[in-house]
């Protein structure tokens, strides 16, 4: 007798799937927002006139890009308590994911900053804009348009990477998959359902990103 793929067998576990999907979505969206803010700061550091600040920015990016996310999650969750930082699973995962993603966000944003011609900074300065005003009104609107497509990649990468949070006891979709698989031994069904949930979540967030892009850049060609 062979194996019969029967989705019916995991119906009793679907109740916990919605909670798990909600947790994956909350964790990913928060990490995306935090890592954009953090990444913007680091990208600015990397364009600084100070050699020390440039070094700090570059070091951050290289450390985060060259260490596995799983190791960062383990350090935050398991090693944190030994230096007096005791975080819940969710908070530890959020911090680990944000720190890691910020390394990539910084590089994406830096590419956007480089694309803004130096003449524009000079022009803004000549118009009497402060540094903050220059970033707010001249630089960032152009940066966001340039980076919109690579940003989409990173947004999806964060959602998929959030599946590692199950290693530090966050009950998100990957955790649901392992838990229900091990309980019912219906691994094929749970693998397929988890894959579909991630597909739908990533597409939903991606469509949301495209929608925001359309609102922000009404005139001219929309970067996808």
């Amino acid at each position: 007798m062979g194996y019969t793929f029967t989705l019916r067998t995991i119906y009793p576990y679907l109740g916990t799937l919605w909670q798990a999907a909600g947790l994956t979505l909350a964790l990913s969206l928060l990490a995306i927002v935090i890592s954009i803010v953090l990444g913007a700061g680091i990208a600015i550091l990397r364009r600084s006139h100070s050699r020390l600040l440039r070094f700090i920015g570059a070091a951050y990016v290289e450390v985060m890009r060259n260490t596995p996310l799983l190791v960062i999650l383990y350090i935050v969750y398991f090693a944190g308590p030994s230096i007096g930082i005791r975080l819940s699973s969710f908070n530890a995962a959020l911090i680990g994911l944000s720190l890691n993603s910020a390394g990539y966000m910084a590089e994406i944003l830096r590419a956007g900053l480089i694309a803004v011609a130096p003449g524009q900074f000079e022009a803004a300065h000549a118009q009497g804009l402060t540094a903050l005003q220059t970033f707010r009104y001249v630089v960032f609107p152009q940066v966001f348009r340039t980076i919109y497509a690579p940003l989409g990649n990173q947004v999806i990468a964060v959602i998929l990477a959030s599946s590692l949070a199950s290693a530090i006891a966050v009950d998100e979709v990957a955790s649901w998959m392992e838990t229900v698989g091990s309980t019912s031994f219906r691994f094929f069904e749970t693998f397929v359902v988890a894959a579909i949930v991630y597909l739908v979540l990533c597409q939903a967030v991606n469509l949301g990103r495209l929608g925001i892009g359309r609102m922000l850049f009404r005139q001219g060609a929309v970067a996808r």
């Binding site: 383990y74 969750y77 398991f78 090693a79 944190g80 308590p81 030994s82 199950s166 290693a167 530090i168 006891a169 009950d171 955790s175 392992e178 838990t179």
Partner: peptide, 14 residues
Amino acid sequence: RFNTQADEMSALLS
């Protein structure tokens, strides 16, 4: 919930 007993042990010891 953890995936391995080693992770459970790390959580207990920390």
